[in-house]
Write a protein that binds this DNA or RNA. Structure first.
Length: 809
DNA sequence: GAGCTGGAACTATTA
DNA sequence: ACTAATAGTTCCAGC
């Protein structure tokens, strides 16, 4: 097969149509309700993505399970003849403009709530938003965050709540910064978001829409008020701490050593992330300040609540929860009342039927996921403070979706890669600053091909750097850095447990952004691993990537989403100091005979470093291992010259993908790097991924500016099945992630593909599959997570197969 | 004084 | 079960 044959799919893009026309929606999946879109300036539409996007993704599983008569699930939902996907029925819009869901929707299983409670939640919020302002419930102001806090898992909040991150502040600061944001204009503001009601008259109007309101950016931890700190009294703060799960206390015995006097929450050295802001925010303070809060603030608060709920679902570390349980009585008491206080009112008749359907889902499975936690009494539908315009439909791709880095004239490229090492900070620490570039300065990202005058929003989140599909990293979160040294405005958003930094991409800057505002926060493994549904382990899972996304509005009203991931970044202090790291290799392949010299550049190379070539069987075990000769004399801490060993089989007929790693000791090994042995006498096959696009392909958009060597090679980016022919997708070099890194080959003219029904219906057709099949199963369904992914889904594969082909098996 | 950093102590986990 | 090695967290100190 040839790639060309599949180009259309290969290059597929995620085109999200806001359905302004109303019909397109049917063709593309999951889309923003026309109403919403119509009300919002295009730019706004993409800016923030929102939770909604998660809705889709999260919802998918559940939805897909349903016969979905005419209800395409989320993005993939497109059913050829069916009604517009998800929220798209153009003709079926709610009074408020929000598209009405079709009856079948009821079939959505609770599953949605289970893993995507957040989305659901968002959805609810959105729904609420849709409600006329007159219907808003004043009760919003009565939201008793503290109670909710009790449930909240600090860890979940940790990112935001962490003192170190000064989330409270940062959040607040975010808002503040937003105010100052030059592009606050509703029309042009990069922050604009479909989520935010354009009609808002709130003071915060200038503030990045969507971001504040929709995204919760306002993370719960962040006091809605602009000055969280002030609103937090010392007492409340301490109190909050006390509630902290303080995992360390449970584990550590510093007290015994005298190092840490007490584990008492009150004395906890590390202010509980969770605690705090929320808990610390007394009703009084909240209410008191609330007056100054705009609807956005309220939204943020609501979001916070939602976040909590989310946390309960996914984000809340059980450990924390356990702690909470220890205080169950109080918690329960608090929580219950809170719900009451919240004045959560059951969905009223005002709400479209569709929206009601969500109720059960949310409460049921969603909460069940957190068995140990008392169920929050509050109801999702409650928040009604949002303006109609704030309704946001789930339209943007979920964070764990694999998106291309370029499409048509557009290309999102990392002009300057981040350093391969960046010590992440814990919540208990102060910030360790922004991620830097290896040559000094900071990473730079630029969107090429965009000629409009409308600013866009660049999103940044911390993604994984393992061999699986790129997805938000469970143990790391992006941390917004502010200060004199930070020149780039940014805003924090929280999407389903993942912090997203939103940075303006301005035409006057050539759509180029210097990422000097992004730090990395490390969450305690124990907190994350214990949360239900989390299957990833934190131990030795210390590599991340910066993932950038941009949503480009298309003339057609659709939105093109592009994504690019940086080179891996080692975030562990120890690993960074001890483990060898290969950043680049001078060659990607050579004939089976070997003998050629390959230069590795990276870190922590020793004269005693060994380079081991390995061929792995599909099941992971090593079929062949060979130590390559290294030139000790040429060995430098940052470079190593190695002679390619001959492959075990000199008669291969097709390229064979092997791996190699640098070893400094028993357990000090670098990540696997990939290398391809080519048949000795067979001409290089054009389709061989590695060779064709060598220079650019290299990590495509990602690799530039890294040095003399052709390209950085990271295992996760370049994994090619040993035998291309065995690829389930037949010829496609299967690799979702690759797409992010590798530009389309010249021969394959980029085409703007939208996630049309055609493409997605295939993948979505079968119930139970995640939309597009691109979405990491794991993220959605723990059970699926355990299932080994077919090679076709491996990120490292050379090319990204069509969505339809990437379905999990 | 706060934010960054580099180091290292101390605990937890794994081999 | 015990010990050593390794990894994760937290704390300290200097800039």
């Amino acid at each position: 097969m040839t790639r060309l044959e599949h180009d259309p799919e290969f290059d597929f893009e995620f085109l999200f149509e806001f359905d302004q026309g109303g019909e397109a929606a049917t063709e593309h999946y999951g889309y923003a309700p026309s109403s919403t879109s119509s009300a919002l300036p295009l730019p706004a539409a993409h800016t923030s993505l929102a939770a909604p996007c998660h809705d889709l993704q999260t919802a998918t599983p559940g939805i897909s399970a349903v016969p979905a008569a005419g209800h395409p699930s989320g993005y993939g939902g497109a059913v050829d003849s069916g009604p517009a996907g998800y929220f798209l029925s153009s003709g079926n819009t709610r009074p408020n403009g929000a598209p009405a869901l079709e009856s079948p929707r009821i079939e959505i299983t609770s599953y949605l709530g289970l893993h995507h409670g957040s989305s659901q939640f968002f959805h609810d919020v959105e729904v609420e938003d849709v409600l006329p302002s007159c219907k808003r419930s004043p009760s919003t102001a009565t939201l008793t965050l503290p109670s909710l806090e009790a449930y909240r898992d600090p860890s979940c909040l940790s990112p935001a709540s962490s003192l170190s991150s000064r989330s409270c502040n940062s959040e607040a600061s975010s808002y503040e910064s937003n105010y100052s944001y030059p592009y606050a204009s509703p029309q042009t503001s990069p922050w604009q978001s479909p989520c935010v009601s354009p009609k808002t008259t709130d003071p915060e109007e200038g503030f990045p829409r969507g971001l504040g309101a929709c995204h919760l950016l306002g993370s719960p931890r962040h006091s809605p008020s602009t000055s969280p700190r002030t609103s937090i009294t010392e007492e409340s703060w301490l109190g909050a701490r006390s509630s902290r799960p303080t995992s360390p206390c449970n584990k550590r015995k510093y007290s015994l050593n005298g190092r840490q006097p007490s584990c008492s929450p009150h004395h906890s050295p590390t202010p509980s992330p969770h605690g705090s802001p929320r808990v610390s925010v007394t009703e009084d303070t909240w209410l008191g300040n609330s007056t100054q809060y705009t609807s956005s603030a309220i939204v943020a608060a609501i979001n916070a609540l939602t976040t909590d709920s989310l946390d309960l679902g996914e984000g809340v570390p059980i450990k924390s929860r356990k702690t909470t349980l220890e205080h169950v009585p109080s918690v329960a008491l608090k929580a219950e009342p809170t719900g009451e206080e919240l004045g959560v009112t059951p969905p009223t008749s005002d709400l479209p039927p569709e929206e009601f359907t969500f109720q059960p889902l949310r409460k049921g499975p969603f909460c069940e996921q957190y068995l140990s936690v008392p169920q929050p009494p509050y109801q999702w539908a409650k928040p009604k403070s949002l303006t109609p315009a704030t309704y946001v439909s789930p339209s943007l791709p979920a964070l764990d979706w694999q998106l291309p880095s370029h499409s048509g004239p557009y290309e999102l490229r990392i002009e300057v890669q981040p350093k391969s090492h960046h010590r992440a900070h814990y919540e208990t620490e102060g910030s360790r600053g922004a991620v830097k570039a290896s040559a000094g300065g900071h990473p730079i990202v630029q969107l090429h091909g965009y000629l409009e005058n409308e600013p866009l929003t660049l999103q940044l989140f911390i993604g994984t750097a393992d061999d699986r599909l790129l997805r938000p990293h469970a143990f790391y979160q992006v941390h917004r850095i502010t200060g004199k040294t930070v020149s780039t405005t940014s805003h924090e958003a929280l999407l389903c447990n993942t912090k997203v930094l939103e940075i303006p991409l301005l035409p006057e800057n050539n759509m180029r952004a210097i990422i000097d505002c992004a730090g990395i926060l490390k969450l305690r493994n124990s907190d994350i691993e214990l949360r239900k549904g989390e299957t990833d382990i934190g131990r030795k899972n210390t590599r991340v990537r910066l993932v950038f996304r941009v949503h480009v509005p298309q003339p057609s009203g659709r939105t093109l989403s592009l994504q690019v991931a940086s080179n891996p970044i080692e975030c562990s202090q120890r690993s960074a100091q001890e483990l060898p790291l290969v950043e680049k290799q001078s060659m990607e392949s050579c004939p089976v005979g070997g003998g050629k010299k390959m230069v590795l550049s990276g870190h922590n190379f020793l004269q005693d470093s060994k380079v081991i070539f390995v061929e792995k069987a599909p099941d992971g075990h090593h079929v062949w291992e060979m130590e390559a000769k290294t030139d000790r004399d040429l060995c430098r801490p940052n470079s190593l010259v190695v002679e390619i060993p001959p492959f075990r089989n000199q008669r291969i007929s097709s390229p064979v993908q092997v791996s190699f790693y640098v070893c400094n000791g028993k357990r000090k090994r670098s990540q696997y790097q990939h290398f391809t042995y080519l048949p000795a006498h067979v001409p290089v096959i054009k389709t061989e991924p590695t060779d064709d696009y060598e220079p650019t392909l290299t990590c495509g958009a990602v690799g530039q500016g890294l040095g003399p060597l052709p390209r950085p090679c990271y295992s996760q980016q370049r994994t090619v099945p040993p035998d291309p022919g065995s690829c389930p997708v037949g010829g496609f070099a299967p690799c979702a992630q690759r797409s992010n890194l590798m530009p389309t080959p010249p021969s394959a003219s980029p085409k703007l593909h939208d996630l049309s029904s055609a493409a997605y219906s295939k993948g979505l057709a079968s119930p139970g599959h995640s939309h597009l099949g691109l979405q990491p199963l794991a993220a959605e369904d723990p059970t699926l997570r355990e299932v080994p992914r077919p090679l076709a889904m491996q990120p490292g594969s050379p090319e990204q197969p069509p969505p339809a082909l990437l379905q999990p098996q």
